[in-house]
């Protein structure tokens, strides 16, 4: 049972690569990329809520198709969506939903010896998977078509406090600094490890790594604080927000509003 270091490295690298690809796609010239981030944040969030509220499978399916069309128009490749969103969600939520097919009481549609598949069970599984897939696709669309700092600044339209926007931005920034440190630490560890360590030793190494990272983080936060003060920070956060909604943005907003309202109506 070796390989936990490799698996941690793989997770860290995957997160970093995912962010790199998201940044790259977000700066390309697709349909959603050109929309004002505030309109996108509000519009996609509204659709996600509608997905959660709908009581009809057909409405959820229609919203899924709309999300896929928006993705195609925004340079988000179907293969990427499948690899990042659709398949992982299917495996995870699918595994959770599967027993419901048998366990949900109701009208039996097929009997399998000791147990039976029920119509209600099938519908329950379809609701769970359909909602999870559609909502995940919509939220992936947001980060794939909008640079993260813009997503954050757009949160101001929900009256999100300035200080929270600043902390979210700074957290994202330091995720990459700490990720790099962790990666270097694990790679150094990996290169020095000969043979397989006993399990207790592996645990001790993992928690020491976490401890090193923690004390470095605390030290770094102190230095960042100094760097902020050095440039006039006195505890108050000010942000520069320079979004300008154009005519097309209003059209998009109307479009999102229309789809959301219609889905809400049909999905009652």
């Amino acid at each position: 049972m070796s390989g936990y270091i490799e698996r941690t490295i793989a997770s860290l690298v995957a997160a970093s690569e995912r962010a790199a690809i998201a940044e790259q796609v977000a700066f390309s010239e697709g349909a959603l990329q050109r929309v004002d981030p505030r309109v996108k944040v509000a519009g996609l969030f509204a659709l996600i809520v509608v997905v959660a509220a709908s009581r009809r499978l057909s409405v959820i399916a229609a919203l899924f198709v709309i999300a896929a069309i928006l993705a195609a128009a925004s340079h988000v490749r179907m293969r990427r969506l499948a690899g990042w969103v659709w398949l992982p969600v299917l495996f995870f939520t699918g595994a959770i939903a599967l027993p419901a097919i048998f366990l949900t009481p109701g009208h039996a549609v097929a009997s399998l010896g000791i147990t039976a598949i029920t119509e209600q069970g099938l519908r329950a599984a379809a609701f769970l998977i359909g909602r999870a897939e559609t909502a995940s696709t919509l939220s992936a669309l947001l980060v794939l078509t909008t640079p993260w700092p813009w997503v954050l600044k757009a949160l101001r339209i929900f009256r999100c406090p300035m200080i929270v926007v600043a902390i979210l931005g700074m957290t994202y920034r330091y995720i990459f600094v700490i990720l790099q440190t962790a990666l270097e630490m694990f790679e150094a560890r990996q290169s020095r490890t000969v043979g397989v360590l006993p399990p207790s030793e592996r645990r001790r190494l993992a928690s020491s790594a976490a401890g090193v990272l923690l004390s470095k983080s605390v030290q770094m936060s102190g230095e960042v604080h100094q760097a902020m003060r050095s440039r006039g920070f006195r505890g108050e956060i000010h942000l520069l927000q320079d979004f300008r909604a154009r005519a097309t943005d209003w059209c998009w907003l109307a479009g999102f509003g229309l789809v959301a309202a219609a889905s809400l109506w049909y999905g009652r």
Binding site: Y174, I175, S221, G222, V224, H225
Partner: peptide
Amino acid sequence: TQMVPLLSVFAA
């Protein structure tokens, strides 16, 4: 004033 960097780095 240390709250912002402390929370950010710690959340990361």
